[in-house]
Design a protein around this nucleic acid. Sequence first.
DNA 1: CCTACCGATCGGTAGG
DNA 2: CCTACCGATCGGTAGG
Lengths: 198, 198
Amino acid sequence: MARKQAADYEQRREAIVEKAAELFAKRGFLGASIADLAQECRTSKSLVYHYYPSKEDILFTVMSSHVDALVEAAEAAVAASGSAAERLRRLVRDFMRLYVGAAARHKVLLNDLDNLPEQPRQTIVRQQRRVIELTEQLLVELEPKLAQKRENLRPVAMLFFGMINWTHTWFQPAGRVSPEQFADMAYAMLLHGISGVD
Amino acid sequence: MARKQAADYEQRREAIVEKAAELFAKRGFLGASIADLAQECRTSKSLVYHYYPSKEDILFTVMSSHVDALVEAAEAAVAASGSAAERLRRLVRDFMRLYVGAAARHKVLLNDLDNLPEQPRQTIVRQQRRVIELTEQLLVELEPKLAQKRENLRPVAMLFFGMINWTHTWFQPAGRVSPEQFADMAYAMLLHGISGVD
DNA sequence: CCTACCGATCGGTAGG
DNA sequence: CCTACCGATCGGTAGG
């Protein structure tokens, strides 16, 4: 049988990651100390190091949990039934939902990737690349001429990711425009704008 | 009369800022030390502190020099002759040119604003706000229905800034798509996409 | 008496 | 799970 402490081991690990995501999002990875994190968690630095071997390891956990969710959403949208336009709309909405629901993790993913050591960084980058490639699949389905002009595919995909990733700097979920409304605006901009490119 | 050393005072100040921009862009403001900066400049830390009172002051100079150039470009585009579409196209091209020409400063502006103390931070934020407002003026001229639905103006402007600001994470000026080509793609996406929004 | 600049080191704090 | 503590390095400043 598991010991008493082992029972809530995962919950404690997850609680630390959540607080770390918030702290890293607010002050940056380098600007936030393990002592800050321990205080936020109402424990000691040593306890934090009992659950994670290093500060970078916590950063990796923050990022991978979020990027894994993005990969899942992208895979589900690509595999779904319906027209390319319908599945792309779903993708944009799901991305916005994840961005808002995990705003701190998302901000950390976008701001502090370079503070990860080379190997774990590559793991995250591979997942990001997967998200991009799945999105590109949908874009080609939607606009076949992107398959003809392959050199335009990546820039168009990046125009899209720029539109929605940039939200982390300004978007307020409780503001006048809801996440769903903004997702539909980004979707409309992409759908109508894509025909004007080239 | 000015002394011999005083003559190149401004050049030395500028050289420090340029190296600082590159260093801050590569490692982040907190990840780069004054010792690193001094080494890059082949001088001592004391020399750096002779030209700037603090590390934050250097960061401010890096940012303000760049954001001032953005404000100037936006003002010129708004004041130029020609249709709204022509002036917007000019604006997008000028922004991309500045982003590429001052890539390090641009990256620092986007990544390290929160590392500035409150007062200088507000100064930069005011200039950024000015860039956004000038761009919004052009967008309203281009698409009058944005004047009717004011709540859509800011999100549309942010869709645009997302498209071009996001380039700092992926765009390679020497790649298959040139800065001018990408600027025209972003412009086309905006021009055609804007009609699809609402 | 000034500005320009150096080698050495300050008091504190970081991750571990 | 804590206090005590480390080697190193931080931003900034001393005397000359």
